[in-house]
Amino acid sequence: MTPLDELPRIGAPATRALHGAGYTGLGQLAGVPRTTLAALHGVGPRALRILDEALAQHGLALG
Rank of each mutant, 00 (worst) to 15 (best):
T24Q: 09
G11A: 09
P45T: 13
R34S: 01
L26N: 03
L40H: 09
A14R: 10
E6C: 11
G20W: 00
M1L: 15
H41G: 01
L37I: 04
T36E: 12
L37D: 01
A12N: 13
L62C: 02
L18E: 09
T36M: 04
G27V: 05
Q28K: 06
A21V: 10
Q28C: 03
Q57D: 15
L4I: 00
R49S: 15
A54K: 03
A61G: 14
L51K: 01
V32G: 07
A17R: 03
I10C: 12
G20V: 06
P8H: 11
H58N: 10
G44H: 03
A61M: 08
G63A: 13
G44T: 01
I10N: 01
T36F: 08
T2E: 06
T24Y: 07
T24H: 14
G42I: 07
V43Y: 00
P33K: 04
A12E: 15
I50P: 05
A38K: 08
G59I: 15
R9P: 14
G27I: 08
R16L: 07
I50H: 02
P8R: 02
A38V: 08
Q28L: 01
A39W: 00
R16P: 03
L4R: 00
T24F: 05
L62G: 12
P33G: 02
I50L: 12
G44S: 02
G25W: 05
H41F: 01
D5S: 15
V43L: 09
L26Y: 10
G27D: 06
L18R: 15
A54T: 07
A39Y: 04
I50A: 11
T35S: 14
P45K: 13
G25I: 06
D52H: 01
G27K: 06
L4P: 01
G22F: 07
A17L: 13
P45G: 13
A47Q: 13
A47T: 00
